[in-house]
Amino acid sequence: PPPQQSQPSVPLNQDSLQQRLQALLEGVRNCWTYAIFWQSSYDYAGAAVLGWGDGYYKGEEDKEKAKSKASLSTIAEQQHRKKVLRELNSLISGSTATTDDAVDEEVTDTEWFFLVSMTQSFVNGNGLPGQAFFNSCPVWVTGTDRLANSTCERAKQGRVFGLQTIVCIPLANGVVELGSSEFIIQSSDLVNKVRALFN
């Protein structure tokens, strides 16, 4: 197994994860839209699985641009997103009241991508996070062309939802993924920062 996976993995609780994800995005120079920690575990058949650990959505620097992009999605798509958000809101708050303005606000593409991520998992080296974990090597995909032409479904999906950069950094017990609607060139500083914060 890759050396990083052979280290004992220390489970992080969700508060601690959230603090680290937030500290990461607030502490770096570039405009990252979100950070997700994919937690490693094993399925019933013993296959390595990366599933949702926690995530922090910061949003886009240019909120007006993000909004105008969201308005390019079809009316039906926006209605669908708002309906899902309303249902999730009810589920969390335990109320069916829909007087919340936030629920009726347009759901941007990157917000939707982040939400959909909560339902995803990656088995045996699949997807960008799986690839990074399996090879113990960061994956850095920048540019709409590279995302669109990637063999990974998540990269293609990211491009469709307005991302220009997706980075996956493997750790002993999972993967930190960062995404941005900006074009961000590779930097070892970020990789070091993630490792220092999470390992």
Binding site: D101, A102, M118
Partner: peptide
């Protein structure tokens, strides 16, 4: 109805809360 695994509820609640803040700030 939407089924959300318990472990993801905290993330979701936080996302919705932050979204509320973002919307009220614009």
């Amino acid at each position: 109805a939407v089924a959300v695994p318990q472990a993801r509820k905290a993330s979701l609640a936080r996302f919705l809360e932050k979204r509320k803040e973002r919307v009220s700030n614009t």
